[in-house]
Write a protein that binds this DNA or RNA. Structure first.
Lengths: 95, 95
DNA sequence: ACTACATATATAGTTTTTTATATATAACTT
DNA sequence: AAGTTATATATAAAAAACTATATATGTAGT
């Protein structure tokens, strides 16, 4: 196999991180260089706080998001702007 | 939530389909409008035939690939050329 | 019809994700 | 320091995906 297994592994890790309805919705929210707190996100998506926090930490651990604390709040944002293209791409392919 | 749940679901289904090392390798192989038989694929990737067939059927069922029989062989190809961009995109984001 | 080659499906055991919920930590306010 | 708001983590049960392997089906050639 002429392919680097490690690269395949880490690519699939990142894709798996995004491949969940709530996490796709989060990436969509943060598209356009937006930064949002956990509260903003869980209220906009109408989900439990702990659920939002849980998915945010998955996205952060897998290198999709970054976060910065601002007082009581914690703002999340896309690590790479480019990442929202993945969702746009999939959307276009939903024949 | 101002977002269509069905669209999120089906987008995540398609992403989940791709988010696996072997399946990423398959999509990579088929990039550039290539059509390949199961035999070509499992030999190139150095995996079992049944494993290749299994992953190919996942990719087909989730709308990533199409296939056409040609005698004894079955050729698989990307349903949307665009889909290989997803992997290129993820690769670029592996900081 | 028999054989060989190509592909698909089935099964079972294991591991990962998911989901829901409870609880803990952290920072600010008074 | 006690209360309040914001966020994170822990736990456990259920669902889904993964892996390996066995077997079945489909197609062509003799």
């Amino acid at each position: 196999m002429a392919i680097d297994l490690n690269k395949l592994e880490s690519a699939s890790e990142m894709l798996k991180a995004i491949a969940h309805p709530i996490r796709i919705a989060i990436v969509n929210l943060l598209d356009g260089n937006k930064k949002m707190s956990v509260t903003e996100i869980f209220q906009l998506l109408n989900i439990e706080q702990a659920v939002a926090s849980h998915h945010l930490s998955i996205l952060k651990n897998k290198g999709v998001l970054l976060s910065e604390r601002k007082g009581k709040n914690c703002n999340y944002y896309l690590k790479h702007q480019r990442l929202s293209q993945i969702i746009a791409c999939v959307d276009k392919c939903q024949s």
